[in-house]
Design a protein around this nucleic acid. Structure first.
Lengths: 125, 125
DNA sequence: ACAATTATACGAACTTTTTCGTAGATGCAA
DNA sequence: TTGCATCTACGAAAAAGTTCGTATAATTGT
């Protein structure tokens, strides 16, 4: 029951997580921003069809223009990715990953505060 | 100058980071543990040759058995991976990634302490 | 010296992922 | 109605990544 989306699939999932329900066109347009060349419409369509076969998304086909929605959660999916990364790249140490993540990205003070709070919560158990 | 190793390449890099200098056989054996089926020797060899072409590793060919060494650093490479993940999956928030990483993996108390210290350091700037 | 082992090189088969062209259906506007 | 835009389905090409067989050379042990 391990969810392992490909890179393209992950990009699409990210959009679905952010926007909720989407048509293929919605996703295709979002995808085309933040890229140099356009992304072909049928390319996006095909990917989403494949994702449907794999059970990564569900879709409402009651109207001609289908509406897609993520079936796998953001948290579960990213957890898998992070776990894999921790195991392979960081020799099993989540702490190493966390520090690496914080080192380069300038996080705002609020973000840091949020993390501290979160850690304090964790420690209470 | 963005380093983007494939999954197999990343596995090999991880081994090189951990063990320093390695022959193909070293890597191949390490790779074969922690796997069901064996990994073919020439498969590993080929991958490492490709990595050499790409500049991911360097090698000493002075003796018959070549000795490989990572050319890209663990920190830089993992930073790239994390940044990509933060940008796509976590909408630009490192904090989100950090909390997600800590949520499932049970980190030891020492690890948590280490992270807290690290954050305190960060805050001083 | 010879056979067995172990190395590199390299091409090609194979798999997975991504992209795209084309066909056919539906909707919409003049 | 007729033509144009838009949608899905589908197959297959193209690209990327992985695996492996074979040739050949060097090394080792008997």
């Amino acid at each position: 029951m391990k969810v392992k989306p490909t890179n393209s699939e992950l990009e699409i999932l990210t959009i679905l997580w952010k926007k909720g329900e989407c048509t293929v066109r919605d996703v295709n347009e979002e995808l085309s921003e933040g890229k140099e060349g356009e992304v072909g419409y049928t390319t996006t369509l095909k990917l989403m069809q494949i994702m449907h076969e794999k059970g990564l998304v569900e879709r409402d086909t009651s109207s001609r223009t289908h509406v897609y929605k993520a079936l796998v959660s953001q948290s579960k999916t990213s957890q898998n990715l992070l776990d894999t990364m921790i195991d392979t790249v960081f020799n099993g140490s989540a702490a190493q990953l966390v520090m690496q993540a914080l080192s380069n990205k300038k996080s705002s003070r609020e973000e840091i505060e949020m993390i501290k709070k979160y850690i304090d919560e964790l420690e209470k158990k």
